[in-house]
Design a protein around this nucleic acid. Structure first.
Lengths: 159, 159
DNA sequence: TAGACGTGGACAACCAGGTTGACTATTGTT
DNA sequence: AACAATAGTCAACCTGGTTGTCCACGTCTA
């Protein structure tokens, strides 16, 4: 049964969806029913140093306006806070709140748990091989999160 | 280097994106710069027998209204045609046009070519193993295409 | 030191692809 | 014949993107 290239693509998508859907469900069960993967990614980027909207936009390969919108909801839900930047009055410095970090932590744990289940099903070594191959194929690719809609939108350069 | 579950998810996403971006780019180069993966999926479903809007919506796990919108653009661009259904006057029967089939064919060829390149990089057997594992993990999962936005929207049941 | 230029943020208008809800026309069932 | 279910359409709305415009502030340089 020779697989088609399209099947392969679908398989990868299904894998991603499976993990993410699982994670969202579990996160919701833990009381964080208002977090989306987008938010997780954004918080992670903020925690990693993208502490203002423009920078966040750059990290996520998204316009600063889009980043600002995401920040607005994150702030609204208490996951990040914004304060004046002491050194540059143009900026509003972003910070992940304790609640935000809690979600981040929970998210990580859930993903790790899901991965662990996969390990149990196909074997630790096998899963590692799978990851290695994927990594080899893709490089440590920069995450591009102009995602919602990208399935349907105009193309960017290929990865 | 123990990989995290989140990395795994990102890896799968990156893989999918890589293939799809590549395919869109190539398809655009061949003159079909107005096709999105969504359209491809929809045409495929229509060709496979989902010959009316409601049915298409069901196949794609999407509301019939959403399906109708997709059909509208597909029709507008000449990829599918709609005619009266001789047996049921409520229905408008969908048909993929020759142009639509051409795109479908081209898309398949491109995906196969991309998959082939992956074969060359990690080896035919290795890629097959990867696919087998993924398939084992996911089952021959029904494709759920309520996708644009699902990264950011409310959760459905996990796959 | 003044002005030019660049950058951060905000606002508005727009788009794509989804959603629900309401309504009509037709078909199928009792 | 009456009623229920289904196909399609319209309208209003949501989310997460996009551009473009504008202002306030910082930085660089003539």
């Amino acid at each position: 049964m020779p697989r088609s290239g399209a099947d392969l693509a679908l398989l990868l998508l299904a894998g991603f969806r499976s993990l993410v859907d699982g994670a969202m469900t579990e996160l919701a069960a833990q009381g964080h029913d208002d977090v989306r993967p987008v938010h997780d990614f954004a918080m992670r980027a903020i925690a990693a140093g993208a502490d203002n909207a423009s920078e966040l936009g750059r990290r996520l390969s998204v316009s600063k306006q889009a980043a600002a919108k995401t920040i607005a909801v994150l702030q609204d839900r208490g996951y990040v806070s914004r304060g004046a930047d002491p050194v540059d009055a143009r900026r509003k410095r972003l910070e992940v709140t304790p609640l935000g970090f809690e979600v981040l932590r929970a998210g990580e744990a859930i993903f790790d748990e899901l991965r662990h289940r996969w390990e149990e099903r196909i074997g630790t070594a096998q899963l590692e091989v799978l990851e290695q191959h994927l990594t080899a194929l893709l490089g440590e690719s920069p995450i591009r999160l102009d995602t919602p809609g990208w399935l349907a939108r105009d193309l960017g350069e290929p990865v």
